[in-house]
């Protein structure tokens, strides 16, 4: 694989550090998201565990780990046990392609953006398998909804993320982040802003958050595809959704704001600041809207977002040719 930083040894050390940091970050972002969401609703949010409730997500995680783990009689035992692990691992793996500690990701090669998108798609395949293997009507309806949602939002998301790649003339996330620091051109701002908007909307759908929390719409289908999971498996799924939140925020922060790139401060600080801002944007969206219905979502995705993102790619192309 081309472009590996240093030896296999360094990759292992950085990788381990990344896993630990992502674990902490995901819990921190869950807290930040909950707190921001609560403050926007005139509530306090987590308050008691740790300073300002900072340790609440960790406490929740530990509590879930200690709870009874039930596997339904009719479930496909192997897939049912396997899918939470895979769902947790995939976003973690994808984070290896994003620059976190330095201006270069731990693993990068030309085309890792495509690979990251591929992994995100794979994630939803496993969501569907998790739903299917638990043989619960709520899970199956949730799984079908998740699959529908993914099919419709994957394409606009990919088209939105392609725009910065076009300007940077590279399909590597690291190179795109570097482009922001070295050769950013102001004319790229308009298509980038539109692509950012589309990416944020799609990210909400990918993360199954309001207004697109349809696959796990609590008041309709209980917990959607997660209904049958409990104990350790549920803890892993909760952690997975937190890691996904980190991943989406990091991906958007890197591809639209340069991620770890920035003056004066160390790269990790820039990464943290930019990602937190993106999470704050997510929390605002969550507080502002009601849930869409699945048919409205599909119409929105295919009827508005897809043409919009295609137009955006075209505009970006024309701009690049003109400048």
């Amino acid at each position: 694989m081309a472009g590996l930083v240093g030896s296999a040894y360094t990759v292992a050390v950085y990788g381990l550090a990344l896993i630990v940091v992502v674990g902490i970050l995901s819990l921190f972002f869950e807290w930040f998201d909950r707190k921001a969401f609560a403050r926007l609703q005139n509530r306090y949010g987590p308050l008691h565990t740790g300073p300002s409730g900072l340790l609440q997500p960790l406490a929740d995680f530990i509590k879930l780990l200690s709870k009874e783990d039930i596997t339904p009689e009719a479930a496909d035992k192997l897939l049912f046990a396997l899918s939470p692990v895979v769902i947790c691992t995939i976003p973690l793996l994808t984070l290896f392609f994003i620059p976190v500690f330095s201006k270069e990701a731990i693993v990068f090669f030309e085309g890792d953006l495509i690979f990251a998108l591929f992994l995100a798609t794979l994630l939803y395949l496993f969501v569907f398998i998790a739903a299917w293997s638990s043989t619960n009507p709520f899970s199956i309806v949730g799984g079908v909804r998740a699959a529908l949602q993914l099919m419709s939002y994957e394409i606009p998301l990919a088209l939105a993320l392609i725009v910065p790649a076009m300007f940077a003339k590279s399909l590597s996330i690291t190179t795109i982040a570097k482009w922001f620091e070295t050769s950013f051109q102001p004319y790229a701002l308009v298509p980038l802003a539109l692509a950012f908007f589309i990416a944020v909307v799609c990210a909400q759908a990918e993360l199954e958050r309001v207004p697109f929390d349809i696959p796990e719409a609590e008041s309709e289908i209980v917990a959607g595809w997660q209904t049958e999971f409990s104990g350790r498996k549920l803890a892993l799924l909760r952690l997975a959704s937190d890691i996904e939140l980190v991943l989406m925020a990091a991906l958007i922060a890197t591809l639209f704001f340069g991620g770890a790139a920035g003056p004066w401060l160390p790269p990790f600080a820039w990464f943290l600041i930019k990602t937190t801002i993106v999470v704050f944007v997510f929390a605002n969206i969550r507080a502002l809207f009601a849930r869409f219905r699945i048919d409205q979502l599909l119409r929105g995705a295919w009827g508005i977002l897809l043409p919009l993102s295609m137009l955006n790619v075209f505009v970006a192309y024309v701009l690049m040719q003109m400048m």
Binding site: Q41, N42, R43, V210, P211, D213, A217, S219, L288, A290
Partner: peptide, 16 residues
């Protein structure tokens, strides 16, 4: 009703 359609902020403000 706000909660049922996933509009949590509406729910929270009304109950306040």
């Amino acid at each position: 009703a706000g909660h049922e359609i996933g509009f949590h902020s509406f729910f929270m403000y009304l109950w306040r």
